[in-house]
Write a protein that binds this DNA or RNA. Structure first.
Lengths: 144, 144
DNA sequence: GCTACTATCGCAAATCGTTCTCAATAAGGA
DNA sequence: TCCTTATTGAGAACGATTTGCGATAGTAGC
């Protein structure tokens, strides 16, 4: 299996874009965070490592990462989007507590069947899905 | 089955909030749109009807509609959230074309099983879900 | 390797959606 | 009807994201 940086380089080449150290630092940062992340977290992480990557560059790199299939939007919260890398990872879904905001990741095979069924029904070439189940977690539901 | 405005009034009363014509106009507008909507669409709709509801009021009413379970966030696009009313409607999921952006609604029973399974596994009181399947639609996939 | 072309960069200004401030208004209990 | 205070509208403020621009640096062709 190709590494994420290889996938990215191939994508950049195929698009006729330029291979730059700034873009590759962003890719590296994205895959260094093993959790959901937002633009600011990437910026802070790169800053801590004394990489002088501007926020503008991070914002400009995000669409490339989305289009290349390395990351996807995970959820919108606190006024901005949160992402997660999806390359090389088993697809997972999110379980969110509406009260305390905690997010648990889970995997459920059946969802793949839904993808397939729906793809056939509407003649779509399905490439992925996002499932968020929400409710009240153990701790929060007792206070009700 | 109670009408949406009745549900809303009950919610307002239980919360000790005040029943105002502005809030009820927003509720009416929300249920007059039989599709996904955003804040601006509500504003424009109310404007066309010569209702002078400010955007601030619409923004302040949205959280009440969410908390009362009348609407839910549908998806984030073009820099802002889009909502849909869910009261009195069968739960549905979204199928999105990544290229042309069209959104098809579909229902799939299996998803309810997933809710149940996951709720038990993590001891959650599950109240709902959002599933978005994405890919390339018939028209768009031929151009590839 | 050198050159020319131009994509990409960083910075700061601009934009856009959303929230906040505050004075005026009006809901609703006494 | 009166009084208290939640709610409103308007615009300022805010925060995230995008854009404009001059400087920098990939990369294709020599």
């Amino acid at each position: 299996m190709k590494s994420e940086i290889e996938v990215f380089r191939e994508f950049i080449r195929n698009k006729g874009l330029r291979k730059t150290p700034e873009r590759e630092q962003v890719v590296r940062a994205v895959f260094a965070i093993h959790d959901h992340f937002d633009v600011d977290e990437l910026y802070v992480l790169l800053r801590r490592e004394n990489e002088k990557i501007s926020k503008a560059t991070i914002y400009r790199t995000i669409p490339l990462l989305l289009e290349s299939g390395l990351i996807q939007e995970a959820y919108f919260e606190d006024g901005h989007l949160h992402y997660e890398h999806i390359y090389g990872h088993e697809h997972h879904c999110h379980l969110r507590c509406l009260e305390c905001g905690q997010i648990i990741e889970f995997t459920e095979e059946i969802v793949r069947d839904v993808e397939e069924k729906v793809g056939e029904r509407y003649d779509f070439l399905v490439t992925g899905h996002k499932l968020e189940v929400y409710g009240h977690c153990v701790k929060c539901k007792v206070h009700r």
